[in-house]
């Protein structure tokens, strides 16, 4: 009786999980497998590393790859430099202002990336508010530059950086700061010796998120950087959809995925080390 009951419960549960498993298996795991397989084809030969070889030997591909990495890095550093003080401010502001400030930081996440990107097109455009600060004859060209890509990506992904650092900071025990203050530590010492090391896991995690998101972003670099400043996602689009070269396009996608996955994995391991070190 009891055993039959448990079996029927198990069947019910399996049935309830079935839709999720089908979706994950059929539309997530399987398609990724197909991409991986396609990337290992050269005409009719399989398996072959030809696609990967040509990516890593072709000057054009390498240039795009380096540009993508540099944009990812610069965006991450910029987001960290601008985001860290914001996270600090969040932690130390009164609860009313914290709510308002958090709301301002979070609300852009609910607006489509395309709208935010378009906002930067207007802001950086030749008739935009920034250009109009300059006399007409020496207006700098801001759109269609790598700088525009970095600004746009940084704006779009900086909330993740701030939230990530903030959540690490919020875990710091206020009593530590008070204890340090009673030990006559200066503000700078408190920051350097307590806040900075204890917020490190948040910095690392936030940087990893921003780095991988900005490396894989498609529409923002295309719109703000133009055709001259191609990044890997643009190349993936071109190979797959414009040229119809799915084999090389798949290999590019796998390379991109490998880079971001490695970064995320390394960071996960590193930050658990940091947490252990700081905690122990």
């Amino acid at each position: 009786m009891a055993k039959a009951h448990r079996t029927s419960l198990l069947i019910t549960h399996a049935a309830m999980l079935l839709p999720l498993l089908v979706i994950l298996g059929f539309f997530f795991v399987l398609p990724l497998g197909i991409v991986a397989t396609t990337s290992l084809k050269e005409e009719q030969t399989f398996p072959s590393l030809a696609q990967y070889l040509s990516i890593f030997t072709d000057g054009f591909y390498l240039e795009v790859m380096v540009r993508t990495l540099v944009i990812g890095l610069v965006t991450t550093v910029a987001a960290l430099l601008a985001g860290y003080p914001a996270a600090l401010l969040l932690v130390f502001s009164s609860s009313r202002w914290r709510r308002v400030f958090l709301f301002i930081i979070i609300s852009p996440l609910f607006v489509s990336v395309i709208v935010r990107t378009y906002g930067w097109i207007v802001l950086l455009g030749p008739t935009g508010p920034i250009a109009s600060l300059f006399p007409p004859d020496i207006r700098p060209r801001m759109l269609k530059t790598e700088g525009a890509i970095v600004i746009g990506l940084m704006h779009i992904y900086i909330p993740y950086m701030v939230l990530s650092i903030n959540s690490a900071m919020a875990k710091i025990d206020v009593r530590l700061l008070r204890a340090a203050a009673t030990l006559r530590a200066s503000r700078w010492q408190i920051f350097k010796d307590i806040i900075l090391p204890l917020s490190a896991p948040g910095v690392v995690a936030g940087s990893a998120i921003v780095f991988s998101l900005s490396m894989t972003a498609f529409s923002t670099p295309v719109l703000l950087g133009g055709a001259r400043n191609k990044t890997m996602p643009f190349l993936i689009y071109q190979e797959n959809l414009v040229l119809g070269d799915w084999q090389s396009g798949s290999a590019l996608a796998i390379v991109l995925l490998a880079i971001t996955t490695t970064v995320l994995a390394v960071v996960t391991i590193a930050s658990s080390r940091i947490v252990n070190k700081v905690g122990g």
Binding site: L17, L20, L24, F27, F28, L30, P31, L32, I34, V35, T38, S212, M215, T216, F218, P233, I236, Y237, N240, W246, G249, S250, A253, L256, L257, T260, T261, L264
Partner: peptide, 27 residues
């Protein structure tokens, strides 16, 4: 295991997911 599997699409770049789905339907 199942929860982390279900969370994995969040770490997958959308561009990779997009071409993967296109290839699935293509094949």
């Amino acid at each position: 295991f199942l929860v982390s599997l279900a969370m994995m699409p969040l770490t997958l770049p959308h561009i990779v997911l997009a071409i993967a789905l296109l290839q699935l339907f293509g094949s």
